[in-house]
Computed example of a mutant assay.
Amino acid sequence: MSEVNLPPLPPIGGETSGRSVVDVLAEQHREALALTERLTTGDYDKQVASVLVATLSRHLSAEEQYLYPAIRTAVPGGDEIADRELAEDRDLLMLLSGLERGEEPGPVAEAIRRHVAADAEELFPLLEQMVPAEDMIRLGNRVETAEEAAPTRPHPRTPSRPPWNKVVDPAIGVVDKFRDLITARKTYVRDL
């Protein structure tokens, strides 16, 4: 098994606690798919589109900060896999920009389904095979933290690799959240 180079988090009760990165990201995928279904089966709903855009913007930012670097470090051939996923995620961010402007949700739905399938069928099994369980939990904790600080709007031209994305994304996230607040934009499923 390969170690992912992460500084230790203080354990609670002597053991690292939390959910595995696979569990965290799989739950986010289910939420994104449910929003996609909701958006594509009825009339265009601007609020559902906004929540989907915000959910995926946060999700992709967290993956760029922690999932892809873990793939690069722990998986043989990880650089090629991560580069491919980053390119596809950049395309998805461009589609999300269009969705927020009211464009047809079909291409976004297709890209989301492809993203979820690639993670579930390729990336997650590789990580589970190559990374110790404790590191998977530490990655899950970091993904959840990164997602809360992440942008709520697509920014396909910002850095997508550490260390720069770990600096830029939270700063842009503050601006996005301020914009969301003053425009009363909904960004979480619980707000629908």
Rank of each mutant, 00 (worst) to 15 (best):
P11G: 07
V175N: 10
D89W: 05
A120F: 05
H155I: 06
N5L: 15
V53D: 01
V167F: 09
G106W: 08
T41E: 14
E148K: 14
A149F: 06
R114F: 04
G14V: 13
L95K: 15
P105C: 03
R190M: 10
A74H: 09
D176N: 10
L181T: 13
L25P: 05
R157F: 15
H29C: 01
E3Y: 14
D43W: 09
D91K: 11
E64C: 03
T158A: 14
V21I: 15
E134F: 06
Q28K: 10
S17K: 15
L139N: 01
E27D: 11
I172V: 15
G78T: 04
P8I: 03
P125Q: 13
V21G: 08
E103H: 12
I182N: 07
A34G: 04
P170V: 09
N5I: 15
S61K: 00
L39G: 05
L126C: 04
V108Q: 02
F178K: 13
A49Q: 04
P151E: 03
T158L: 13
V21L: 15
P154A: 09
K166M: 11
T16C: 11
E147T: 10
D91L: 13
T158P: 04
A49V: 09
E63G: 08
V189M: 08
V75R: 08
E15P: 01
S20T: 11
Q65D: 04
V21Y: 05
D180R: 05
V4L: 09
R142C: 08
T40A: 10
P10D: 14
I81W: 01
E104P: 02
A146K: 07
A184W: 11
V168M: 04
P8V: 05
E80A: 14
K177I: 00
L192E: 10
T40F: 05
